[in-house]
Computed example of a mutant assay.
Amino acid sequence: MKFIIVDEMHPSIVSMLEGIGIVPDYRPSVTRMDLLKIVMNYEGLIVRSKVKIDKELLDLATNLKIIARAGAGLDQIDIEEVNRRNIKVVNAPEGNRDAVGEHAVGMLLSLMNKMQTGDKEVRNRIWKREKNRGYEVGGLTIGIIGYGNMGKAFAKRIKGFGCRVIAYDKYISGYSDEFAQEVSIEDIFNNADVLSLHIPLTEVSRRMVNRKFIANFKKNFWLINTARGEVVQQEDLIEALDSGKIRGAALDVLENEKFETLTSVQKLNLENLVERENILFTPHVAGWTYESLVKINEVLVEKLRESIGRI
């Protein structure tokens, strides 16, 4: 089978694919317009998030049998259309779950201990100990929404701080383990001091964290989002930060991560957040470690090996 790889990946992907009998065409600089002209020549497509897999592309991909997503999220793929055409889809959340779990812990510790502001001030020869007094994670109740690969990886790590960890997942049950207790969404609302999001972007989850959702929390809480920026309604996040309902937020993702395409409203919202000391940003790198690039390849190739045998 001939596969085209349209995003930057760890170079090990080529030899790994050749090892299972796939002919790889590594073309990370290809544009969508270029891909539309040549996609019919391939039986497999390996993507990250650069190219949207929609009806226009699929209509031209007449020989496509399998799509491999190098990562977890499938929101850039029209799953309904893909299923209608009997095209197999595989992804690799196992490859970067450890990276996401570690990053989420790091963001929470940095946010609660004001490390980002302390560092900035010391670099400017400002020494304010009391202003930068932090909070301890131990003893808090950590609420997780989404207990798949990422949520469980975060729970495994944060549990070691002496927290109570509770988790809600709309789509699975019976997942209580040594790291987290399965609870209802009402239990999350009633008990969480920290909320960490580990859910895919769907029509159900889009702007799920809005004014109504936030108002359900009994306590003022810290928010961590390493999932997708569109899960959080930015205007309502700002309102909750103003009121103190959200004590601070660690954001690895934004509603629109292409700054050159921000709308006027998105620009205003980002400017508002940037000015706050209780906001910590990272540029969508929670699952983007040196190690995860290789692990994603390993997971993806193993899943392709299994899938090709069934096509």
Rank of each mutant, 00 (worst) to 15 (best):
T226G: 05
R69W: 02
V204L: 11
V232F: 07
G248N: 10
E230W: 00
N269K: 04
K159R: 10
V299C: 12
G287V: 12
V165Q: 06
R310M: 08
I87E: 06
D177H: 03
F3M: 10
N86P: 03
I311H: 13
P11W: 03
G148D: 03
R305V: 05
R164N: 09
R211N: 06
N269I: 08
V82I: 06
R247Q: 07
N297V: 03
R85H: 01
K50E: 06
F259M: 12
V209N: 04
V23L: 15
T202A: 09
N225A: 11
V183D: 13
L300D: 10
M115Q: 14
A70M: 01
Y290Q: 13
T261D: 15
A61Y: 04
K295I: 00
E302G: 14
M107Q: 14
G162V: 01
V253W: 11
K267Y: 12
L197W: 01
M16V: 03
P24E: 04
A286D: 13
V51I: 14
N149A: 13
N96A: 05
Y147R: 05
H10P: 02
E257V: 00
E102A: 06
Y290N: 14
L262I: 13
G151K: 02
L17C: 05
L74I: 10
P28G: 11
V294K: 15
A286R: 12
N124K: 14
R305T: 11
N41A: 12
T226Y: 05
N124S: 15
L304D: 07
Y168N: 11
E43P: 02
E178A: 14
Y168K: 05
E203Y: 06
I144T: 09
I238L: 09
G162M: 01
I224Q: 07
D78W: 01
K258Y: 14
G139N: 04
H10M: 04
W127H: 12
Y175G: 01
R27S: 15
R164G: 07
F154T: 13
D252L: 09
F161Q: 02
L109T: 07
S243A: 10
